[in-house]
Design a protein around this nucleic acid. Structure first.
Lengths: 260, 260
DNA sequence: CGCATCCTTGAGGGCCATCAAAATGCGTGG
DNA sequence: CCACGCATTTTGATGGCCCTCAAGGATGCG
């Protein structure tokens, strides 16, 4: 099914796992997912949707826009924050809190966003009646963990310009999977300060790193728009390999194993 | 049940989730876990147990010793590696590969270790018949993700001495939970080069960072033995808070939610 | 006792943080 | 349409953390 058809039939959740494991879901299962949200809401830029430490009985699915998971720095709340992951439409942002209940980080919007809230009671019903779907939900939280690991590697190994290039490469691939990227770039609501948070750097240095990317011809960043005419060069510069996103290439392998 | 009793009845898997969510497991469920391993094996220091990229049909439970998940740096294989997580006895090291099948990183021993291999077919049987246990297995993979997030924060926010102090503080707490720590420190097979890999630094700089920890009275590290007389000072210095480990303090909350 | 591994120390240089200030773009309201 | 305020971006200067290369010292094992 194409993305357009998918979104026609499942306008809220059609992007969930699209380009990855969605193909292994039956239509009944996709319908069950579409029926999960109890409430749809729209938020403005930089709104804290869930606060770290709170016990929650619902999870957030991102329909439209971007979100970030992070933590305020303990010394100066609100000033310097630690970015843990960025989320694009189709992501079940804090599904893991269904199993852990208490969230260990904040969940904020980056730019305006439309969200679907899924009560955990409904998830529990789905798990009881649709075990295969339950396993796929599990997998989707593990994709998050795989991205975490790549971020760790990125922070341990790369300089700031390469870290930012890696961020660009990852977001681009992920937007691609849900049909929201262009042929030579993509749009985000990110600021240079956001990039600094994600790369463990400062806004000033992120600015200089972006200049280097521009001068090297790797990528351009202007007010949230990322343009890179040579995608291979960008991914090469960032030591980026899309394997950890478990995208289309791996689907053949996965689908076989998921045929319970 | 005390840890001693637990290990008496479940010598292989008695430490799995001990001090965290194990209390929510029935005796039948614990017995089911104990019956999972198909093979027990002992390995020497620095043995690669699973190679990145391979499709695996079994997962590894760490019974005794330490393991590390990581990636070799692309340019110089075997030389500079990126450490992603360290594992202690009781950890279901690569359980996530049950759901994702393909591993995105290597799994190596650090020092000698005793491992239990669990075939995925057995896990599948357990999931089919014991849904509650299945959810707990899910949770255990999410604890890994929570630790990943804390590592990301650690790398983004802290200097190398504080990163190493954070590593010490985390390992100490985790060894505590499975009864393997002392009152003023703990033993590991880690070298200074390992600490460097874990903190995204170099062996030389890790050495200087350890000297600073020693001079500041935060912690001592001598041939794998970590000694810190003032644990609060160590955790304070490292900006460490054990919440993300979802240990005993949170059990009351969790247990309630897990009473399906 | 010899060897391998690990630890330690020095010197030089590069990446990045910090402080400070100015320029640019953008929405609001006059 | 212009003025204004505000967030964001840009640039400079200084200093600190950390990398790299190099060499020597300690420890443990056969």
């Amino acid at each position: 099914m194409t993305l357009e058809e998918e979104l026609e039939r499942f306008p809220l959740t059609g992007r969930f796992l699209f380009g990855r494991l969605r193909e292994t879901l039956s239509l009944e299962e996709r319908a069950a997912i579409e029926a999960l949200p109890e409430e749809i809401a729209t938020f403005e830029n930089s709104v804290r949707v869930v606060e770290a430490g709170t016990v929650s009985d619902r999870s957030t699915l991102l329909i439209e826009g971007f979100m970030m998971r992070g933590l305020d720095h303990m010394d100066r709340p609100g000033e310097q924050r630690s970015a843990l992951s960025l989320h694009v439409p189709g992501d079940f942002v804090d599904l893991h809190c269904f199993a852990l209940k208490r969230l260990d980080h904040n969940v904020d919007t980056v730019g305006p966003a439309r969200l679907a809230f899924v009560p955990h009671t409904k998830l529990q019903d789905v798990l009881a009646t649709m075990p295969h779907l339950g396993r796929l939900l599990w997998s989707s939280t593990l994709l998050d963990a795989a991205m975490h690991r790549q971020w760790i590697m990125k922070l341990e190994q790369l300089t700031t310009p390469r870290r930012i290039a890696h961020i660009f490469a990852e977001i681009w691939r992920r937007l691609d999977m849900v049909g929201l990227a262009g042929p030579d770039g993509f749009d985000t609501p990110l600021t240079q300060a956001d990039l600094a948070d994600m790369s463990g750097s400062t806004a000033v240095h992120a600015n200089r790193a972006l200049r280097e990317l521009r001068e090297k011809g790797v990528a351009e960043f202007r007010r949230g728009r990322v343009i890179a005419s040579d995608r291979a060069a960008l991914e090469d510069y960032a030591d980026f390999s899309a394997d950890y996103l478990y995208g289309e290439g791996q689907l053949a392998i996965e689908a076989k194993h998921y045929a319970i």
